[in-house]
Design a protein around this nucleic acid. Structure first.
Lengths: 708, 708
DNA sequence: CTGTGGGCACCAGGCCGACAA
DNA sequence: TTGTCGGCCTGGTGCCCACAG
């Protein structure tokens, strides 16, 4: 038994030490071994206790790197719950041994290579030990890479839903994922932007509606095995009637939009994000830990030691455990991660500008996540993001051939949605497109607002380093469907806006109503509390639309039929209701109203009122910021129904006759039918959905707020 | 202009120095760059003259590795002839500059990225200069690998025929490639062994004959871009009549088999092969150059210098140029390759036991090739090789999806051959299966021999390190088709043999007649002149055939019809002619005789005579060794027709009536029809080939030799 | 003549405090 | 409080000779 003090820089092992994530170098020819590793998926990304190290060969110095060394290890803690397909073995302590990867592996290893054998072994919870024979040749780096590729399971195999807290921490503070069984509106347009850069031709599918109310039947929080990019897979079931909605916890209007926003660092103090500095990302250096992070997230350090030092173990999104040396030293004293950090940076391919997230999970585990800065583009500029997404997609396709990112996949999902059939979507929160599955209550609340040109609003954006959220002020310049030809009644990107700081938000020309909050002009100064105004932003990157105002001039709506009561004429835009409503009942298939709740009486549409400055001030929305008020925040989760009855939708919505007579609309073309329809039966279409009816319930939000 | 003395171990560049093969690390996100590199194919694997080095960034020490450095280079000599598809630009000096690979490459590089632009530029032979921006981050190794993969063209793209001399040097001394336009016999059985481990089911294709006479219409010497393994792509045109044979230079029988064997180191003294020692392959060390190699292959060293040192530039099979420091030092003095050697070893992934070939080409270029030792098997043992071949094949398939190594590809080729249509085959000389396209004259000469059990022979094998060739003695134990059920008339692996040293050649149980030379028992001692007898061998690895003797007992031939004149009864095997010849004329499609030259008269088959020991001695073949006789060798190329008229096939074959009445045969089932056939016209089948007719001309070789 | 091993120098990686923002 | 830098130590790489087969 010969002790090798140091044999490989990536694999520094001493007897009795415990090592994390041993990337096992495999001899080139051992195809079988690689396949075996792949079949085991994550089993090797485990905490490994080194029992003995043996060096074979005649000499251990000059040819040490060619000697086959035997590393006898105990896998003391499996860091991931999966051994083989479908088998969960979380928490199994296991030891693997007597596995010889030498060239003559074939005969003696076939037994071990059989995944079913592994499955059985783990069922019995018997201890197994692996004698891992490492080829410490000069090609270790190469081999390590190829093995890591092999070990890393493809997306199609691993669908484990990872820790929701870590997922959200990586996703960033802007992301709001709907709850399981909650209602969302699915927007095919948004899906197309997200998954196919908007380059989806819906023209051949006239039955696809602009939005479909769905129940979230499943949601899996996942992460790309190569890039660690978090994404979610959502199962959606189009809703035919409200009986599907037993577990809906989404009955309160008006709160959804910003309820969980800004949770990071405030409502969820157990996580901390830091953007890597040059020194952090520099290969030779360590990681400078902000004091707040070290004191609130990391395990308590024994400051009586000199120097105070400890080992940090942090789990990443894949369940891999990373080991860091945490030391408190220097003058003045500061917290640093030294040993292990460089390895992490290299493995995750981090560069300055990327962010790292430390999170203390509810079970006490320390987790580490990664948020990559947008490469090759300075935040706001470029309009690249869609393209980059598609490129990644193409690579992905060749790997798992799932087709998540093609126009076809969007069409397929949208067709299923239109037909009332369950479907699946993938959502990448780090992509710079707005969420296309939006909490129904948020949409409803937003659409209940009488949007009109001239309105002042604020909208939240992530700063480029993803560490902060900034609010930007803007003015609604126009209200009309973003694609009037195809989706004339779609609220998607309904608002055309101008920004108070247009240079920073050049590419953000149209926004979704549920992403903005109306504000008074006077509050502009103090709504951006923690961000210097010029900080670079991460904003949704809409594909460049051609100017839509020109389309308006050429659309089918005669100018003569436009009313004038609340004419926002100073923008030259028309946001009035359409007086000849019946003439444009060209609602797409599946949009007919068969929801008893929404059978509001037919009435003559009353044009919305022009909102003057005074009214706007009185309409200032504070609900999105309500969680900044500690006294309110405490009770709102449990008592929001009672506390804000004015926003209730289900139960007894408070609706005045006046409110019922109003409807939201954009310009003339964006008018939703909200009169009673000779109700088609359920057989009229598999998805005679209630989207319109939901919007039909809208009230003037300003008015309600005034009442309360 | 800041000088970076050393910035990266794989890229050590000083001003004014010339570097070879700069693997360019590319920032991760630069997909466009990678595509561009791929489109340029080999352009970057060139001799590069460093003009200037610039380091940008605030500091050049601690963050040097993150700083983008600009390397201003001149590509002084393009090492490969291809820039873009179809464009040959050998010898173009070109300089590339002003190419910025920074993140914002897209806009400014699109022009450069256009392959057609490069095509034009190279047409004009204008000087271009590239400012190559290198991301010297810690991920250089990773990136280098990915870029190398990108740069390396796939097989499907590059079909450049590489230097024949280097190809043959890498292929080894055993390999005999047919000449362009020469005649070969194509053996589907051999093809199946070579390309699909023999696991090809020909059962559904009864029209496929066991051999097809072909003209070699094309031959390309190629090398695997990943492994450097040499292989050849051959175009074959089945021959319908001898008029196709205008340029046939293969008219002399009896010489072909060993004419070009042992050329390396003897007839071709400008190449030298050495098997790498541990020290050679060891990462820390250099390469110990044998004196002979240094003095005969390498450029002349100036021994007056102290120490004598020079730079060696050697081109590999891909045309890449490798640079080595050649020094003559130490006590006692010896030749060493130092700087550059380690890089070569790592890049080629060489290990001890692999061989390296240095060759001085006719044009004076120094070339370097690689011959890998068989991994994972000790030479003779295992029977792996076929399997390994197939595994490599599967990998290959996923890469170029060419299907060179499937049973289907063999079936396809064999069907085309059977139908007289041109086809293509790939031959990997380092695979351990016999050549399946064999010089026609060799086959004819071999089949003219009256093979019979008990005959003594020798056969050449390569030693495991590929450096030498050893001759092994054996005895023919049985003569019958290797697969009597399907290929009853195939000469492929006709001879079942026993070896004088059976332990070394356990898996070689059946051999092709044209690969062996008959010898007398007495010459056994001195025919293995330059190899210790126990040196490990590299031998063809036939798939394990089940014992064929049992098949014989169950075949369709009644025992009663077997003659007994030359009964080699001491082996219990029957090598007599079939007296009821007409009953087994079940020749496969395409085997009918329509060759006027071969329309030998029908006659009663005379059973072959038993060869007693005395006769065998008199039959000793010396033709195969004739080139060892300097006086003979000098003239044989030009005058072989005249010098050995007894072996002529075309022209005026010397055939006595007795000779014509004889035919070669193995056991009863391996009888070729050589009587006149009611000749089918050409329409009888596209490939009514003359294979049988060729063999129909056979004479008793023993007899002919006795006459001369 | 050449294979092998130890000596040794160089350098990239990595940990440190100093210093300043 | 923490980002950046130079100092400095260390281990790995690679060139050298000695020695021996």
């Amino acid at each position: 038994m010969l002790r090798c003090k140091s044999w490989n820089s990536s694999l520094r092992v001493d007897l009795g030490s415990s090592v994390c994530y041993v990337p096992i170098p495999i001899p080139i020819c051992s195809r079988l071994v690689r396949e075996w590793l792949a079949s085991l998926e994550h089993v090797l990304t485990a905490l490994i206790e080194v029992e003995s190290i043996e060096c074979r060969g005649d000499h251990c110095r000059s040819h040490m790197k060619k000697v086959f060394c035997s590393l006898n290890v105990s896998v003391t803690k499996l860091s991931t719950g999966r051994l083989v397909n479908g088998l969960s073995c979380d928490g199994i302590d296991m030891v693997i041994k007597d596995l010889d990867l030498e060239p003559k592996i074939d005969a003696m290893m076939r037994d071990f290579l059989d995944p079913s054998r592994w499955k059985e072994l783990s069922k019995e919870k018997s201890d197994i030990t692996v004698l891992i024979v490492l080829d410490l040749s000069s090609r270790v780096a190469d081999l390590k890479m190829s093995v890591m590729n092999s070990v890393r399971p493809s997306n199609s195999v691993v669908e484990k839903s990872l820790d929701s807290q870590l997922w959200h921490a990586c996703a960033g503070g802007m992301v709001q994922m709907p709850l399981l069984n909650s209602k969302v509106f699915y927007f095919p347009q948004g899906h197309a932007e997200h998954a196919a850069s908007g380059k989806v031709n819906f023209g051949d599918f006239p039955q696809i509606p602009p939005y479909v109310l769905c129940r979230v039947s499943a949601i899996k929080f996942m992460a790309d095995p190569d890039t660690d990019e978090v994404y979610a897979k959502m199962g959606l079931v189009p809703l035919k009637d409200h009986n599907d909605f037993g577990s809906d916890d989404d009955g309160v209007l008006g709160y959804g939009q910003n309820k969980n926003r800004n949770v990071e660092n405030q409502e969820n103090p157990t996580s901390f994000a830091k953007t890597l500095t040059q020194s952090d990302a520099n290969n030779g250096g360590g990681f400078s830990v902000p004091r707040y992070c070290a004191e609130t997230i990391f395990p308590k350090l024994d400051y009586t030691a000199d120097p105070p030092v400890q080992t940090i173990l942090a789990k990443d999104v894949h369940g891999q455990i990373w080991k860091f040396r945490h030391i408190y030293r220097g003058t003045p004293r500061r917290h640093l991660l030294t040993t292990g950090w460089s390895n992490f940076v290299n493995n995750k391919k981090l560069v300055a500008g990327d962010s790292i997230v430390f999170l203390r999970a509810d079970n006490g585990d320390l987790c580490v996540g990664v948020r990559r800065a947008k490469r090759g583009g300075n935040g706001v500029g470029g309009g690249y993001c869609g393209l980059i997404r598609e490129d990644e997609n193409n690579n992905k396709l060749s790997k798992d051939s799932k087709g998540k990112f093609t126009g076809e996949s969007v069409i397929e999902a949208a067709k299923l949605a239109a037909n009332g059939k369950p479907f699946e979507v993938f959502y990448y929160p780090r992509a710079s497109t707005p969420e296309f599955c939006v909490k129904a209550s948020s949409v409803k609340a937003a659409m209940r607002i009488q949007w009109c040109a001239g309105m002042r609003f604020k909208m939240a954006f992530e700063t480029e380093d993803s560490s902060q959220i900034s609010w930007f002020m803007g003015t609604v310049s126009s209200v009309h469907a973003s694609d009037q030809a195809r989706w004339s009644n779609s609220p998607w990107r309904l608002l055309q806006v101008t920004w108070d700081e247009p240079d920073l938000l050049q590419n953000v020309k149209r926004v979704n109503p549920w992403l903005v909050e109306m504000v008074s002009n006077m509050s502009a100064v103090h709504i951006s509390p923690f961000s210097p105004p010029r900080k670079k932003l991460r904003v949704p990157q809409p594909p460049d639309f051609s100017p839509i105002s020109s389309l308006i001039a050429n659309n089918n709506i005669p100018a003569s039929i436009q009313g004038a009561r609340h004419n926002s004429s100073h923008f030259g835009l028309n946001n009035n209701h359409h007086p000849e409503f019946d003439k444009i009942q060209n609602l797409p298939y599946g949009m007919l109203n068969n929801d008893p709740l929404s059978r509001v009486p037919s009435k003559t549409l009353e044009p919305s009122k022009k909102i003057n400055e005074k009214e706007k001030d009185s309409c200032l929305l504070t609900m999105g910021n309500s969680n900044k008020n500690p006294s309110l925040k405490k009770n709102e989760d449990n008592e929001k129904d009672k506390r804000k009855p004015v926003f209730m939708l289900f139960g007894q919505p408070i609706l005045t006759k006046q409110q019922l007579s109003e409807s939201w609309s954009g310009d003339g073309s964006v008018v939703l039918q909200n009169g009673p329809v000779e109700t088609s039966s359920d057989e009229a279409g598999p998805c005679s959905s209630e989207q319109k009816s939901e919007f039909g319930l809208e009230t003037s939000h300003c008015k309600v707020l005034t009442e309360s």
